[in-house]
Amino acid sequence: MRRDRSRLAAILPGLWLAAFFAFPFVLVLKLSLSDTALSVPPYTPQIDWSRLNAFIAGLDVETYARLVADRLYLDAWVSSLRIAGTATLLLLLIGYPMAYGIARCAPPARHALVMAVVLPFWTSFLIRIYAWIAILKPAGLLNAALAKLGLPAVNLLNTEAAVILGLVYAYLPFMVLPLYAVLERQDGRLVEAARDLGSPPFRAFWTVTFPLSLPGVAAGALLCFIPMAGEFVVPDLLGGSETLMLGRVIWTEFFANRDWPAASAVAVALLATLLAPILLFERQQAKVLR
């Protein structure tokens, strides 16, 4: 009886998400299969549920054919995955020692440090990326500092390196937190046992601590990789016109070219690419919460 009542709580949020999260994907898919037209909104058919057959007959893959034919889209796809993948690896390399270090501290310091890692996440993403423009631009703070040290200037703004730097910077809290959650819960006696049995510290870490922390590694990597692959703000502000990423292509097709079907088709391609990681992430989360 009591169970039945709490089940009712699912109705409102379920309907909300079905209407505003799941259903709109159908529209994206549909539009990606429509013709471009110069009107407002700039595409031909509206949905007409009563004539389903005509609707299906009207679908065409012209937009997709266009995307496959144009190298730009393939390049953007490849570089999205390359950039997000590189950033994820760097995040692991930076985030793991941080999470490990924090988990090693005494509890009061630990809480303050977790807080310190999370705090930048609460301040605007846009502003944090904007802060890097002032640092990286040719006449920026980095080059001013390098000049003082007598070193040659570097031109980082509007390069792929700047995009990766910005992604690492913006997503670091999302990497540290899941890693910390796993490392903090780990039983310290396991490492002690390995040490007592004569294992050197690094080996104890590599054979005991690290394998046990793999769920955290997977959670952090997925939590960062998936949104980074579709990121818009970072490549747009730090990447210049050279850096192609799918999120940015969707934005440009939509706002600059007003080609809604193309924007939708790229969105479908991005979503299809991320489907497997998203499903993995869901399984992971379900496991953690059980």
């Binding site: 259903f23 949104p227 999120g247 969105a267 979503l271 998203i278």
Partner: peptide, 29 residues
């Protein structure tokens, strides 16, 4: 309960979904 997987699935998917996709799909709606 029936629909639990669906509800949880939509919730976790929102967490990682690239914002460009969410924005575009809502606009089309």
């Amino acid at each position: 309960f029936r629909g639990r997987t669906g509800l949880a699935g939509m919730i976790y998917a929102t967490l990682v979904m690239p914002e460009v996709i969410l924005g575009l799909s809502l606009l089309l709606l």
